[in-house]
Write a protein that binds this DNA or RNA. Sequence first.
DNA 1: ATCCCTTTGTCTGATACCGTACCGAGCCCC
DNA 2: GGGGCTCGGTACGGTATCAGACAAAGGGAT
Lengths: 238, 238
Amino acid sequence: MGEIRQAAVRNNLLRLVSAESFDAIAKHLEFLELPRGFELSEPHEEADYAYFPESGIASIVARSPQGQHAEIGIFGRDGMTPATVVLDAGTDPYSIFMQVQGEGYRVRASILKQMLDEDAAVRVLLGRYAQALSVQGAYTSLSNAVHHIDERLARWILMCHDRTDGDEISLTHEFLSIMLAVRRPSVTTALHMLEGRKLIYSERGMIIVRDRPALEQFANDAYGECEREYFRLIGPFS
Amino acid sequence: MGEIRQAAVRNNLLRLVSAESFDAIAKHLEFLELPRGFELSEPHEEADYAYFPESGIASIVARSPQGQHAEIGIFGRDGMTPATVVLDAGTDPYSIFMQVQGEGYRVRASILKQMLDEDAAVRVLLGRYAQALSVQGAYTSLSNAVHHIDERLARWILMCHDRTDGDEISLTHEFLSIMLAVRRPSVTTALHMLEGRKLIYSERGMIIVRDRPALEQFANDAYGECEREYFRLIGPFS
DNA sequence: ATCCCTTTGTCTGATACCGTACCGAGCCCC
DNA sequence: GGGGCTCGGTACGGTATCAGACAAAGGGAT
């Protein structure tokens, strides 16, 4: 702790705060592994820590009273949790957990909160991130309503690819089916479809992007809007 | 202008600010009719005014590049637009327009923005409202993904009923079909279903809630979560 | 190797919903 | 009180997806 160089950090939000703000927060940052399944936040519970992933992918899932669930958004080194901290909301009703393992920094939520009170620039940045996340949820909603499974799957693979270093994404069909709120066998067939078009390779527990431009073209209407909105609100990341 | 009594106001957010904050904003409030179809905000355009409805219902719709669309949330006197103002986001990608005619106040966005900079309590309130709206979007997403048309329709009627004075909601099937992102005839059949169960009456251009508790029971898994979250974040309204 | 467990592939029938089209009914307006 | 428009009801074939079950294949541990 206390000797993290901002230039070496990969999390986009941590990179974008001013050097002064970064120094203020850096001494409280703790680096840790984020294994698959790691819970970053549980529904209706006040989070002890805020997490800023350096790698890996986290999933935000809403659950109905009867236990139905659907993913409303994902983030990796483009984001953080809990976004509610900047809105003084205390808790949110979501499960947030690591879906592709990675690493990241965490800081006590109380410390981050205090920083936000004192540092308007950081407050603005995280506020804009909260908006980007909300827009991501909105477009997930649209996609759930109007797009076919294979398009939604393509969208989802693209969104993961954006947040991953190579072309390999480590995921099971089972997991994908939860994320897309469809049956597991539907994922299998949809993946075969994408594989047949030579857009991806699919192996046991692994999806490999083979032709990203064609994949974007296939996802077509389902991909792009909320990425553009992130770019407008926060800026580029890669 | 300038002589609006806070106790006479019906918009929940305006009611909840302190008397001092209200006095500061009241002199800038302008009362106006909000006819059906009135545009409160257009996608990617900076809004000139912020609107606080006193009655009627506004709809927030996301549009895909190809022109597909789906509703992600609604608000009436429980809310305001643009929620982005508190997040310094400038614009959002949604169409926001009146769906059931009503009345409301508006204030120049620049004035509201300035107030937010100076008044932390108002900033917190609107921030929490932004969160409530985001959660509403998340549960719309969940509903789009996992619930059947008739349940979603019931949910939607309940949400409108919450924001209406009587039991009558003035809406065409066409409009409903856009909101639920389904075919118009599907709405017709679903409404018949609800009518057959004696939960509503349905007339030309009008839906009348007949048995609200039973309607809630029917909507079951689809209704309630985001209402509870609004209550937690903001408080009751009625 | 052998066992076991996770993950993936495939099948069957059922169904919710779609796209499209067409017609009837209510309502406004001259 | 008829013309025309909006709105609602209904019908038909088509298909994307579901529900559930089962079998095969990969991979780790003994």
